[in-house]
Amino acid sequence: MKQVVVHPERCVGCMQCMVACAVAHSRSGQLYTALAERPRPRPRVHVGAGLYNEGFPNRCRHCDPAPCLLACLAGAIFRDAHTGTVLIDPDKCINCASCAMACPYGVIRFHEDPVAPPGKTVAVKCDNCDQRVAQGLAPACTEACKSGALTYEEMDEAMRRKTAEVARSVSTGAETAAVPPALALLMAVKKAELSL
């Protein structure tokens, strides 16, 4: 089964995944109209900064067993038996933040949401774009990502590709570096700036 695979070394921090995610979870599904919606749709993938301000798309891993699911006081978090996606039922959620205390990745947010009862603050996180996937679409974040940091593919395939990349980069006379030289230069400068 295809899934969203994160390749952190490729994240350029543009946050386009966040925009695409928020739009995908809006009522209208269109950027320009989504901006006018209330509650304003919000992203479920969060681009954070690493130690030298490199981008990092942080999204729910849909862990198994899922600490958030085990910690949920109201039984609002459950796993979809078919897709394996860990989901939050906004009608059952009591906004107690026990899941935030349990999530080792810090990917759960609390706010009003287009799919929650109006005016109610609930826990919100990545739903793997299950609805888009059911329509034959890829998850919105992977569609938006143009640098290959978020891909939608078979895990085996991703692992194979990664192994090959690593093998290429450590073998002598490698034709392609894992990170293009000019980008590596930028990274080096940013690191140097921060280490002053």
Binding site: P8, G48, A49, G50, Y52, N58, P104
Partner: peptide, 20 residues
């Protein structure tokens, strides 16, 4: 990593992976 990082509003799990 420096413990002060953990207190900052921008702290996130990526930073635990170190100076990657």
């Amino acid at each position: 990593i420096p413990p002060e990082r953990l207190l900052e509003p921008s702290f996130n799990v990526r930073q635990l992976m170190g100076w990657g």
